[in-house]
């Protein structure tokens, strides 16, 4: 009757848990977390603190690792076996995922961390006083919650609240929808006295665009289809703000898919949690979603979540579709000049 953890939780999820608890990020990649911000001179203390999260910082490694995992699958080594092998290396002191990730990501233009720089720059251009915690920024721990490790999640959340308090942080602006939902909606349930105000980047941007006279404008006209990330539209319930921002950008035409496939009914692209345990199912979901978005006739697919952007990119590549996948941040940064 009694089963071990491995039998009830898919192994990749257990592996991610180990990485968060031991290394402080999902992938267990050792590296300078704050490197992206080195040229921005963001203060440590400000009215709002920018919460960069793990997603954009480590996404290029995920891309590399997923490709490596896919090729291992081709030669007959499944995800679980590959993880088993990397664990053996780990025991003798070699961090295989870190090496694989660095090798596969080497020489490739990093299209993800640049989004963090753009996001911080956009907030500055709109006159929002932001600071950054640099290497003190913790992992919000949300994968622990979705993988079933509630006790670890609660412990991590309480530890993080102490860190925020000790640094005098009161207001956070999150960029990654999953981190923001975790900090805004789950932390208050599990952390006593939790009183941080948490906003999502796009809400703040929409608000500031209304208050100021700034008119974003694109040099070339773009016809886009917007994919609402699940965590943004249904967890955080933010569907109007990104549309207000897009409507304010001159030269941008938004084409919506069927009403049953957008806003709070947006079809899931399969990115995020599903990738770890069911890669094949995740791939089918991605292809189906891209098809829905392409039916709008748009030539650029835009989303606002690192997991969605990566998944949609992978799916369009797989379909060999002549379409670009971008983050809303990239478009906005360009439009603000």
């Amino acid at each position: 009757m009694n089963k071990s953890l491995k039998e009830v939780v898919p192994i990749p999820h257990i592996y991610i848990r180990g990485n968060i608890l031991e290394k402080g990020n999902m992938l267990g990649v050792a590296g300078d977390k704050a490197a992206w911000a080195k040229d921005l001179n963001l203060p440590r203390n400000a009215e709002f603190t920018f919460f960069a999260g793990c997603g954009y910082q480590f996404m290029r490694y995920v891309e590399g690792m997923m490709k490596a995992a896919a090729s291992m699958e081709k030669i007959g080594l499944g995800m679980e076996r590959s993880i088993g092998i990397s664990k053996v290396f780990g025991k003798i002191g070699i961090n295989l995922p870190s090496i694989t990730a660095k090798v596969t990501a080497a020489g490739k233009e990093d299209t993800y961390t640049i989004i963090l720089v753009s996001a911080a720059r956009i907030l500055q251009k709109l006159g929002v006083d932001i600071g950054y915690m640099y290497e003190d920024e913790p992992c919000c721990g949300s994968p622990l919650y979705y993988s079933g490790f509630l006790d670890d999640y609660i412990e991590n959340a309480n530890k993080n609240f102490e860190v925020f308090k000790s640094l005098g942080i009161q207001r956070l602006i999150g960029l990654i929808p999953a981190c923001t939902a975790s900090l805004r909606d789950y932390y208050p349930k599990y952390v006593e006295g939790y009183d941080l105000e948490v906003y999502h980047f796009i809400e703040v941007v929409a608000q500031r665009l209304k208050e100021t006279n700034i008119k974003p404008k694109l040099k070339e006209k773009l016809t886009i289809a917007y994919h609402d990330p699940c965590q943004l539209s249904r967890y955080l319930e933010i569907v109007d703000a990104p549309r207000e921002v897009m409507a304010s950008i001159k030269g941008l035409e938004l084409r919506e898919p069927d009403p049953e496939q957008c806003k709070q009914w947006s079809t899931c692209c399969g990115g995020g949690g599903l990738e770890a345990g069911s890669p094949e199912l995740c791939e089918r979901l991605g292809l189906r979603r891209v098809e829905e978005l392409l039916n709008t006739g748009a030539n650029v697919i835009v989303s606002h979540c690192p997991a969605c952007v990566m998944q949609l990119k992978r799916s369009t590549e797989k379909m060999k579709a002549d379409v670009n996948v971008m983050d809303l941040v990239e478009i906005l940064d360009e439009a603000l000049g």
């Binding site: 009830v8 939780v9 898919p10 999820h13 009914w265 899931c268 995020g272 199912l281």
Partner: peptide
């Protein structure tokens, strides 16, 4: 079996479309 149940619940994408 508990393994079968685990397989079913871990194949959910947590997208909340059903919840909506």
């Amino acid at each position: 079996s508990i393994e079968e149940l685990s397989r079913l619940i871990f194949s959910c994408a947590n997208c909340r479309r059903c919840q909506e």
